[in-house]
Design a protein around this nucleic acid. Structure first.
Length: 594
DNA sequence: CATGTCACG
DNA sequence: ACGTACGTGACATGA
């Protein structure tokens, strides 16, 4: 108790301290606090245990007492904190009605903003990379596999070594990383004005969770099970015997060895491919591939979604809590995991039924707001191509406008086929298209695809110039950047290996557009979260899907909310083109999207 | 634990 | 003469 009071004083007096929580679970919503650690300067750290409950565990201060003593400090925005992945700690503390404020640095995000291409930003990796220090790993104190202990079961002295080291290393890492970041004004601003403020916003979204109708999903699982069983019988009959349809290896043996179907494409490892586009091609001439495709599609829906999502409902909250990863995607996007809520089906009617199970609470509705064609608009802004700017300025159907230009027709005379091809060209542009890739997508000759590309660049010379300029700068500097200065390094941009170099060149084209879109929606999330809290709205932001934000809104707030959200999203930045936002609402996510 | 496949933007 | 559209995460199989 005296020791805690002494540390409390040191923390209050420190200009900055490192903070870390130790808990029973990696899942922040279910996690129970076991202890907290602090560091005020390198080499001086403390661990405060209060939840170790193994047999013969020493007497500890109670959690209530420790949190009561610490809460004012943790909630004080003027007491500056640094941590490693503080979103987790913010979310855990929220479970004890403590709002962690004064988050000014996060070493995971410092590392990510400095180099988003590095694929790991966990503390063990960073400590080795920047400090040459091998940390005590969690496995070393907790064991691994089935017999792994949770933190409450770990000997307090060992736990203290581990936890205190975490806080200490976090502080040291910050001292190593921050000077690098501070020296780059654009990166520093991106970090301080976007990534750091986003931490509590993401924490709130995750903790709030999403309401799903588990009964509806169970019903769908049952229906899928029957359809899959029927297909399985048909497939085995057509194949002349039973085999495991979930095994690409066995499908390959049936199709190519037993039935001697032509091998149209191979996998990277040289095996004959049974991927969707290959089977679609084969389905023109044979029955079996089509049946396999239908079986695969339904199995995917069942195993990944209708069976799994209900298992992911947190028994305490009755809702599904994803985790948004802020330091994974090299382009600056978020990713979503456990469960991934950014890949819920939408493209087929069967798949869309799953979105019907994403429902609002009684009295509320789901509201969805998405940016229309945001990456193409960013391309228009970055390239300043007159034709593209004009099309967006006029609010034209962009794919139709592209087709009209490329095929030399008035927009009203563009056929569905021509519009589909123009749409593929537009996607291709965003992806750093090659004629080969476009040809494969549209199943046309490479020469015909090349002709499309030539026609496009003749009509939109500003886009051509932008692409060339982007590539050239990437070669010169070794990185590309977004409008907000987010940087993506391209270590292979000058590689002697052609394939690797061209891959880097495509990334160079794509990253500024995908990354700027990511920056923009992050800013929108900050502004919307501010608005919700300032105006004390009852609505909640519950999901982000790259260019879409989803909300759960009381019916009484709906009318005003839609307009306000659309305006905030459109207004995040003044580009040369308008940022158009489409808003929809309904009882579930499927309806809100329509 | 790598591989192939497929869900999303 | 290369080998190919950008970014993710999850599942089942099979060594």
């Amino acid at each position: 108790m005296r020791a805690l009071d002494a540390w409390l004083k040191r923390l209050v007096d420190a200009p900055l301290f490192a903070f870390d929580t130790e808990t029973t679970s990696l899942d922040a919503v279910s996690a129970e606090l076991v202890g907290v650690s602090f560091a005020v300067q390198p080499g001086e750290a403390a661990y405060v245990p209060f939840g170790h409950n193994y047999i013969n565990a020493p007497q500890q201060l109670t959690r209530e007492l420790v949190l009561a003593k610490l809460s004012a400090l943790l909630e004080d925005p003027t007491r500056q904190k640094v941590g490693q992945n503080l979103k987790y700690d913010h979310c855990v503390l929220a479970g004890y009605d403590i709002e962690l404020r004064g988050i000014v640095f996060d070493t995971m995000l410092e590392s990510y903003v400095l180099d988003s291409v590095a694929n790991r930003h966990d503390m063990d990796t960073l400590a080795l990379k920047y400090l040459g220090h091998k940390t005590i790993t969690f496995e070393e104190i907790a064991g691994k596999g089935k017999s792994q202990l949770t933190f409450n079961q770990i000997d307090i002295d060992e736990a203290a070594q581990y936890a205190a080291e975490d806080a200490d290393i976090t502080l040291r890492l910050h001292h190593a990383l921050w000077p690098k970041l501070k020296a780059e004004p654009m990166l520093r601003d991106l970090f301080a004005k976007i990534e750091i403020p986003l931490v509590p916003v993401l924490s709130r979204i995750e903790r709030r969770g999403v309401n799903i109708d588990t009964k509806m999903l169970a019903q769908q699982s049952g229906e899928l099970k029957n359809k899959i069983a029927t297909l399985e019988k048909q497939i085995h009959a057509a194949a002349g015997g039973p085999f495991n349809i979930a095994s690409p290896k066995q499908i390959q043996e049936v199709l190519y060895d037993r039935l001697k179907l032509p091998v149209l494409r191979k996998t990277p490892k040289g095996q004959p491919s049974t991927a969707e586009n290959v089977l679609q091609e084969l389905a023109v001439d044979y029955d079996l591939p089509q049946l396999i495709l239908e079986h695969r599609a339904l199995s995917k829906l069942k195993s990944t979604y209708t069976d799994k999502l209900p298992d992911m409902v947190n028994p305490k909250t009755g809702r599904v809590h994803t985790s948004y990863h802020q330091a994974v995607a090299a382009t600056g996007r978020l990713s979503s995991a456990d469960p991934n809520l950014q890949n819920i089906p939408v493209r087929t009617a069967e798949g869309r039924r799953i979105r019907e199970a994403f429902v609002a609470e009684p009295g509320d509705v789901i509201l969805s707001a998405d940016y229309s064609q945001i990456e193409l608009r960013i391309m228009a802004h970055l390239s300043q191509d007159p034709g593209l700017l004009q099309a967006f300025d006029e609010g034209a159907d962009i794919h139709r406008a592209t087709a009209a230009e490329v095929f030399g027709l008035p927009p009203k005379d563009v056929t569905d086929e021509q519009r589909r091809h123009a749409k593929a060209i537009n996607f291709g542009l965003i992806y750093g298209m090659s004629a080969f890739g476009l040809a494969r997508q549209l199943r046309i000759d490479r020469s015909a695809a090349q002709e499309y590309v030539n026609l496009y660049f003749a009509r939109y010379p500003g886009v051509k110039h932008f692409m060339d300029e982007t590539r050239a700068r990437a070669h010169e500097r070794g990185y590309v950047e977004t409008i907000f200065g987010r940087r993506l390094y391209l270590p292979e941009i000058n590689a002697s290996n052609h394939a690797r170099r061209q891959y880097a060149e495509r990334t160079a084209i794509n990253a500024p557009m995908q990354g700027t879109a990511a920056d923009l929606i992050k800013i929108a999330m900050l502004m919307i979260d501010d608005w919700i809290r300032e105006d004390k709205k009852a609505l909640r932001m519950i999901m982000q899907v790259h260019d879409e934000l989803v909300f759960e809104v009381p019916e009484s707030e709906l009318e005003q909310a839609g307009g306000a959200i659309a305006e905030l999203m459109s207004g995040v930045a003044q580009l040369t083109v308008p940022l158009v936002v489409d808003v929809g609402s309904g009882a579930n996510w499927a309806q809100a999207h329509a």
